[in-house]
Simulated assay, not measured.
Amino acid sequence: MLSLLPASEQLDVLGRRPSLPAGLRIYAIGDIHGRLDLLNVLLSRIEADKAARPTQKALYVFLGDYIDRGASSRETIDRLIEHGKRNETVFLKGNHELIALKCLSDRSLFDQWMRLGGVETLISYGVPPEHLANGKPVAMLQAAFHDALPQAHFRFFRDLQRSFVCGDFFFAHAGVKPRVELSRQKESDLLWIREEFLKSNEDFGKIVVHGHTPAREVEVAPNRINVDTGAFATGLLTCLVIEGASLAVIDTR
């Protein structure tokens, strides 16, 4: 179930192989997009790995985009909240959570959210499908979402972190803007950036672990690792396992 990460030997931070502090193992999980079925499978496989290979400290880092597109966004958030109560966990913000939260106060973003898969999210929260199909006024959809969103879910979205740093690794949903210090990154870049980051050969001072841009397999470049394997469309949800200078993968295949 645990497989070594191909091409991990090319990773380089300031001329050396990146690593985590001793005694720590990180499980970094890619974009879920409402696929509760895959999340449950992956978490059970991670638990099996922890049982087979005990570690002093296990930390889960979720890379954002928990909702939209898949059929079980609300149930996915319930599952993540439950998981966070029982495990040391970092939840990062994805662009999909950003838009959903902003839609509670900004009606102008609703069309964009619907195009990004928000329709499935609203349905999962109990907004009747006929309301969406019949083009109900945005004000009505906004009110329905506001009423249907549990306070625990609102707090979950509100408290999501923009980034997380540990050892030689920097975790963010989409990536970072080249030639900008990691401590000075803007939220818009951390959650939305694509080509400028993906094509950069810059040594960022940390290995950037990210999702946001789907790939067929875990993608490794000298300065970054992409963990988004397009779970919604492919059925493949992936977890990067980092321990010391070792990198491996657990997935749902």
Rank of each mutant, 00 (worst) to 15 (best):
M1A: 10
L4W: 14
P6N: 03
Q10E: 13
V13F: 02
G15A: 03
S19W: 08
P21G: 04
A22V: 10
A22T: 12
G23A: 08
L24K: 13
I26G: 02
A28D: 07
A28T: 02
I29T: 10
I32G: 00
H33G: 01
H33M: 02
H33K: 10
L36C: 03
L38D: 01
L39Q: 04
L39A: 07
N40P: 01
L42N: 03
L43H: 11
S44T: 13
I46R: 07
I46C: 11
E47I: 03
E47G: 11
D49Q: 13
L59S: 06
L59H: 11
F62V: 09
F62T: 08
I67F: 01
R69W: 00
R69G: 02
A71W: 10
E82I: 04
H83S: 09
T89A: 06
F91C: 07
L98I: 00
C103G: 04
C103E: 00
F110L: 14
Q112P: 00
Q112W: 10
W113Y: 03
L116Q: 10
L116W: 07
G118T: 02
G118W: 00
V119D: 13
T121Q: 01
S124F: 02
P129Y: 02
E130Q: 13
H131A: 14
H131S: 14
L132H: 01
G135I: 00
G135R: 07
P137Y: 03
M140G: 05
Q142C: 07
A144Q: 08
L149K: 06
A152G: 15
H153M: 04
F154K: 15
F156N: 06
D159Q: 13
Q161L: 14
R162T: 13
G167L: 07
D168L: 06
F170Q: 09
F170W: 13
G175Y: 04
K177S: 12
V180P: 12
S183M: 12
Q185R: 05
Q185Y: 05
S188H: 15
D189P: 03
I193N: 05
E195L: 10
E195A: 13
F197D: 10
L198K: 11
L198Y: 11
L198T: 09
G205E: 06
G205S: 05
I207C: 03
V208A: 07
R216M: 11
V220S: 05
V220H: 09
A221T: 15
A221R: 15
I225R: 06
N226Q: 11
D228V: 08
G230R: 11
T234H: 04
G235S: 00
C239Y: 03
I242K: 07
I242C: 11
I242N: 02
D251G: 04
D251E: 06
